[in-house]
Nucleic acid binder design. Structure first.
Lengths: 126, 126
DNA sequence: CTGGATCCTGGGGGATACTG
DNA sequence: CAGTATCCCCCAGGATCCAG
C-alpha cells in the first residue's frame, strides 16, 4: 500500500484530481473499456464490434467510438467502397491504455463470484 | 498484445462477458474508483471522504459507499457515540482492486495532456 | 446492407432542507 | 456528524427511422 503519485495528487485537492476524474468518466465506463479491450485484439469494423459486444445499441456504440476517437484513443478509417466499410483501431495512445483496461476487466472476471456472494449476503441482511 | 483470458471470454459472447460489464459498471465509474483510491490510503470517515473528494455530493457519496459496501469492497463501521462516527475501510476484496484502480488513475494522470491535445485537434477539425 | 441521426422516456445525479 | 427525503432537471441510452 504505497503512497503513490495518484494519492498525492488526489489529496492535493487541486484541479488535476478533477481532470483525472473527467478522464475516468470517459474511459472508465463499461462500453469504452469493452470497446478498447476488443480493439486491443485488432482492427474491427462497426458491425463487427456491434456483434461482438452483446447488449450495446448502435447509438451507444457510435457515441462510444466518437468519444474514444475525440480523445485520441481510436482511429476511424472510412473506406470509400460500396457497401461502405469503416474500420476502427487503437491509436498508440489507445494501446497504452490496453494493459490497464485488461487488468480491470481481469479483476472483474476474477472476482465476480466474491462480489455476487457479497451482494447476496448484503441483501439478505438488509 | 497478447490474447489473454479477458479477450477470450469476451469473444465467447457468453454471459460472463455481460457479468464483467455489470461489475465494470459498478466499479469503473469515477466516484467508485476515486473512493477506492482514497480508502486505499487508509480508513476514512464520511465527512473526510466528502472533503477530500471535491465535487461529490452527499447523495452520490452515500450511494457510492452503499454500492461498494454491497459488493463487498468496503466495510462500514458505526461507532455508537455522540456525535455519531462512521468509518469506512477497504475489505480484503477491496484491497485486491486497489492496484488496478490506481493503475487506471495513473494512466489518466499520465495522459491528460495527450487527451486534451487530441480533443482540441478533433474539435478544430470537426 | 452499412453506419448515423432523431425521438422519447427512465433514472442518474445535483441542490436543498430536515432528522437522530 | 452522518446521513435521509424531496424536488427537479438533464442526459444516458433504447427504439426507430434515415442516408448512401
Amino acid at each position: 500500500m504505497v503512497a503513490n503519485r495518484v494519492s498525492e495528487v488526489l489529496s492535493a485537492r487541486d484541479s488535476a484530481a478533477c481532470r483525472v476524474r473527467e478522464i475516468l468518466d470517459r474511459v472508465g465506463d463499461k462500453w469504452s473499456l469493452t470497446v478498447v479491450g476488443e480493439l486491443g485484439r485488432g482492427s474491427r469494423r462497426f458491425t463487427e464490434l456491434k456483434n461482438v459486444i452483446p447488449g450495446i445499441s448502435q447509438r451507444m456504440l457510435t457515441a462510444t467510438l466518437r468519444g474514444l476517437e475525440r480523445d485520441g484513443l481510436v482511429n476511424r478509417t472510412v473506406h470509400p467502397v460500396v457497401p461502405p466499410r469503416v474500420d476502427y483501431e487503437l491509436t498508440p495512445l489507445g494501446l497504452t491504455l490496453l494493459d490497464t483496461a485488461w487488468a480491470l476487466m481481469n479483476w472483474a472476471l476474477d472476482h465476480i463470484e466474491e462480489v455476487d456472494q457479497a451482494r447476496i449476503a448484503y441483501d439478505k441482511a438488509g
